[in-house]
Design a binder for these strands. Sequence first.
RNA 1: GGAGCCUUAGCUCAAUUGGUUAGAGCGCCGCCCUGUCACGGCGGAGGUUGCGGGUUCGAGCCCCGUAGGCUCCGCCA
Length: 594
Amino acid sequence: MYRTHSCHQLRPADIGQSVTLAGWVNTNRDQGGVIFVDLRDREGVTQIVFRSEENADATVHAHKLRSEDVIQITGKVAARLPGTENAKLATGAIEIIATDLKVLNKADVPPFPLDDPKVNEDLRLEYRYLDLRTDHMQRNLKLRHRIVKATRDYLDDAGFLEIETPVLSNPTPEGARDFLVPSRLNPGTFYALPQAPQQYKQLLQVAGLEKYFQIARCFRDEDLRADRQPEFTQIDVEASFITDVEIQTLIEGMLKRIFKEARGVDIPTPFPRMTYADAMNRFGSDKPDLRFGLELVDLADIFKESGFKVFRSVADSGGVIKALNAKGAAALLSKEQLKKWEEWVKTEFGAKGLAYIKWSEGGEWESPIVKFFSDAEKKALAERMGFAAGDVLFFGADMKLEAVAEVLGRVRLRCADILGLLAAKKDELNFLWVVDFPLLAFSPEDNHWVAVHHPFTRPKAEDMPALEAGEYAKVRAVAYDVVLNGVELGGGSIRIHEKDLQTKMFEVLGVGPEEQQLKFAHLLRAFSFGAPPHGGIALGLDRLVMLAVGAESIREVIAFPKNNRGCDLMTHSPVEVDFKQLREVYISSTAKKN
RNA sequence: GGAGCCUUAGCUCAAUUGGUUAGAGCGCCGCCCUGUCACGGCGGAGGUUGCGGGUUCGAGCCCCGUAGGCUCCGCCA
């Protein structure tokens, strides 16, 4: 037996006991005649004392201890001398008077200080096993475990079955780029790693399992971000004979339990609901952060007769003109900075420009466009926007709401940032359902309509006539996203369960009968054998944990993440493989070597 | 595919306008220390300033290229 107690366990009640502890040397304070070692394990820290006059032999060896050595010590639990208790440690009232020391494994000097949060991330990732020893990372992984456990318990209580689906499955024609896996037994053919268990979970409904969930690993071969990894984990849920509101209620209860058990907070349910149209119109985003205002305001009617041609032409032809008022931002935004913002929207979103009016305290309206406005327009504008000295207005004008939303939605977030609107609300948890997403969007690059959610999403019953009539832009989906503090946590929908409707959807999406047979025959056939009405949702577990621990990146809540080029800096994955290994799976590389 | 920022000791950073021997804190090594807990004291080692080229009497600093890291756009049904 290596130990009798953990390093977090012993208290004054244990004084006098003989104990054995094992762990890592956290710090070693050698004072010559007496040596203090803080011994660390997963649970905590306990102070060990070596006294030369009592245990000369052990003390001699303790002189040689260094950080991160793995040791085992035996000794007696003792009260600390009066006045030397450490209130910062849970075990700070006691210490172990060591009688025996065994070095289980010496450690080299660590390449970086483990307790320094400023160490560069690439170094932490190269030595991830050391980084994971830190309190910070252990807390994150423990909380992740609590969240997964709460999820399993909750869904089990609700009658859901955890069922695994294949990781080796088929490529999907739409959506993200697939990771491919060559099949050795079937030369020239490929599996794909799943982007999501979508079809399998629907087929489990056809199979009559009724309530399914899975903590599912998903794979998408796209570029990485702070909140995107090529492999990530979803809480995947699907159920039969269920409505959209019932799924939302189920998930609200699940998130309530997760946050109660993980963070000890009670989040209010039900969450507010907002339509996609409202979210875009008022906040310029389909995942609005409602912890602050800065709402977008419609101005098209004011500028119908305007002398400013850009606004007038948009207003006249039924386009969208909106503005937001960054209250108190004038003092924070110099002319040069405003120019930079304009450059930013131009380069990043391809906008033509960013119109603004800055009203400094005790000054005039400063703006490249205001000279074109009539007095009546200025008055109407100031009134509607609540424009006052110290404010900055930002405008967006375009024939399409999405274009205005893209620019002003981001300007809104950036304004909130510089105005410090979130500083006081860091701990607030603002949940929201965004509902009534459009079913379809026209893709100019592909020159056909694509599914906004995915091809299996059910159109709203009242919009079926529009679908039949080919007015695709008007058709809304029974789809919903759950949003937390402006981050999309997950999304789902009620699915199509009728073969004919699914076929119709494929046609609209430009998937012809041949391709349907090739790629979706199994699903269409399954629907012909009595498929129940069903629907579900998937939540991004990594993002959920990230928000629960207050991290800035999902890499902080994944044990062994990839960097932003998809590489594992510890194992150097991905790597080149031997020619023979490629030959076995009938692959030859076209990559150019340099 | 594109944009921005970054790279100086093991780690985190500094180095005035381009100027002489590139510094600090922590860590590391050695010695001392019987109540520390960010222990303390004394001494010491440690640098191809990412790499390659250029400008200059002289480059950590300026220019070009390149590699790596981070963030973002595109992409992510």
